[in-house]
Design a binder for these strands. Structure first.
Length: 495
DNA sequence: AGGAGTGCGTACTCACGGCT
DNA sequence: AGCCGTGAGTACGCACTCCT
């Protein structure tokens, strides 16, 4: 608990320490929550006791970073789905803060918003995006009611029902985004999410963490946290993956940033200006996104491969019948592994079809021996048609989505091939010695005007490197005359 | 009784557009 | 450009009914 009623301890932390503390705190909470869940729902507990829980780098690192009351006031994210006053609302307040907090509004938003405002929130400037530090908090002049026009408006209208305030916008700062990513990363590490899929409770939890470093008047609810991630970081990561996927033969620097020669990179980023941000730096939040969104290519590859196999097999009548039957009878068939949802194209928004299909598969796997061959054949036919339809639909989607990318990759391919040819030609040219270059030059421009003997004589003296170099670099208008001069010298010397 | 199939509600992703 | 809301499509869990 901050002794002066503000949030100096929290606000005064450096960003990296805040993140460390956040992760430490959340991981500790994981242990407590898991234990609590185990007590309350022993049957519903998933087998996550062995889920990834990163060892804490420095167990003592949170000492004194967050106010104790803040940790204690941290509610379980699952239960925390409603808009609630910010954590500091429960902390001892200044008289002004208490007056504001006690002013009840139907939505509850107004009071919490003003509480935040009174606590010094939203005084960030673009030049100083980080949360206000403890020194500023504690040493700032006392906040006067007149500093907040909204406050005086409230005081004069307490008997009236205030109009619902316009929803204030959240102004995201770097530290807020970092905390958001760190919170999501912790959620992923403790195995609460499937792939990159977060449930509402996860967003509530993450938003709660962001609130702890948020110093603004707006209500930072889970939807806004989600929007931030979905609108900014998910597309960013998708873009990064697209970028990486189109690189071949590139190397990585020590940071993991794809690198190539300057010429190749110039060409590439000219062809793909949308990836320019990745030329000199990794995506923002890379270290978090790697673990939050990760590389889903493996999953995609498995899925795609399986479906392609199904498509191929669908063209072979005998094999496909056998494979479909096997998929019905083998518990661990690739059909089951392929996709959780094998959906008939005729089915609409209801997922009953997908469920029944997958259930049919799994259940049939258990009871396959009881079925008649006729039933198997029919079911297999059904399954096969579903798989083929599903695969065809996905293939079409893939083609549509990748069409643009492929075009540009092809464009880049031809451009890079051209560049490569030029570079090779230039390199070969540069790697030739002056003798070779001089002889080539002589052959191409002057040899026709000489007898064969004279040509050989020229070859002879161009074997001397300094002569060859001189011939190559001298002005073109003098080259013919210089050749004749040298031949005369040779003849004179020979005589 | 237990498997198979269905309906419904919830949650999530993605795309889009309006607003600031 | 960033923030935010919304709707379509989709995935999933669960309860229910039907059938063997």
């Amino acid at each position: 608990m901050a002794p002066n009623g503000g949030r100096p301890t929290r606000s005064g932390n450096r960003p990296d320490r805040v993140i460390d503390s956040l992760e430490q705190e959340m991981l500790e909470e994981v242990v407590a929550l898991d234990a609590e869940e185990a007590r309350q729902h022993p049957k519903k507990r998933q087998k996550k006791t062995s889920s990834i829980r990163k060892p804490l780098a420095n167990p003592d690192s949170t000492e004194g970073r967050f106010p104790k009351a803040l940790e204690e006031g941290w509610e379980s994210p699952v239960r925390d789905t409603a808009i609630r006053p910010s954590p500091e609302a429960s902390a001892p307040q200044s008289p002004l803060q208490q007056r504001v907090v006690n002013f009840q509004t139907p939505s509850g938003t107004l009071s919490s918003s003003i509480t935040n405002a009174t606590g010094g929130g939203y005084i960030q400037s673009p030049a100083n995006p980080n949360p206000i530090d403890s020194e500023t908090m504690t040493n700032s002049p006392a906040i006067q009611p007149s500093d907040f026009p909204l406050q005086s408006t409230l005081n004069s209208n307490q008997s009236m029902t205030p109009a619902p305030p316009a929803k204030l916008r959240v102004r995201w700062t770097d530290i807020m985004e970092q905390v958001l990513l760190a919170a999501l990363r912790v959620i992923v590490l403790r195995g609460k999410s499937s792939f990159d899929c977060f449930k509402r409770a996860h967003w509530v939890e993450a938003a709660g963490k962001v609130k702890e470093v948020y110093e603004g008047p707006a209500d930072l609810d889970w939807k806004r946290a989600k929007s931030k991630f979905e609108d900014k970081y998910r597309p960013l990561w998708r873009k990064w993956k697209d970028h990486c996927a189109s690189l071949s033969g590139w190397t990585e620097n020590e940071e993991g940033l794809p690198q190539n020669s300057k010429e190749v990179m110039d060409y590439y980023f000219a062809a793909f200006p949308e990836y320019k941000e990745f030329r000199h730096s990794l995506p923002v939040g890379y270290k978090y996104l790697v673990e939050i969104l990760g590389d889903r290519g493996e999953f995609a590859a498995v899925e795609e491969t399986s479906e392609e196999e199904i498509i191929i097999s669908s063209g072979e009548e005998i094999r496909e019948e056998e494979e479909a039957r096997q998929s019905m009878e083998q518990p661990i068939s690739r059909s089951i592994c392929m996709n959780r949802s094998v959906r008939s194209p005729t089915q609409s928004t209801s997922r009953s079809g997908s469920v029944s299909s997958s259930r049919s598969i799994s259940v049939a796997a258990n009871t396959g021996q009881k079925r008649t061959k006729e039933k198997n054949s029919s079911a297999a036919q059904n399954l096969r048609s579903q798989l083929v339809a599903k695969a065809a639909r996905r293939k079409k989607d893939r083609e549509k989505k990748s069409d643009k990318l492929l075009r540009r990759v092809n464009e880049f391919g031809s451009a890079s091939a051209k560049l490569a040819a030029e570079v090779v030609a230039g390199y070969e040219s540069a790697s030739k010695g002056p003798i070779e270059k001089a002889i080539e030059l002589f052959d191409s421009k002057y040899a026709n005007g000489y007898s064969e003997d004279d040509v050989f004589k020229v070859y002879d003296f161009l074997q001397r490197e300094e002569k060859a170099a001189a011939f190559s670099v001298m002005a073109e208008v003098r080259q013919a005359g210089w050749l004749r001069y040298e031949l005369r010298k040779l003849e004179n010397n020979g005589n």
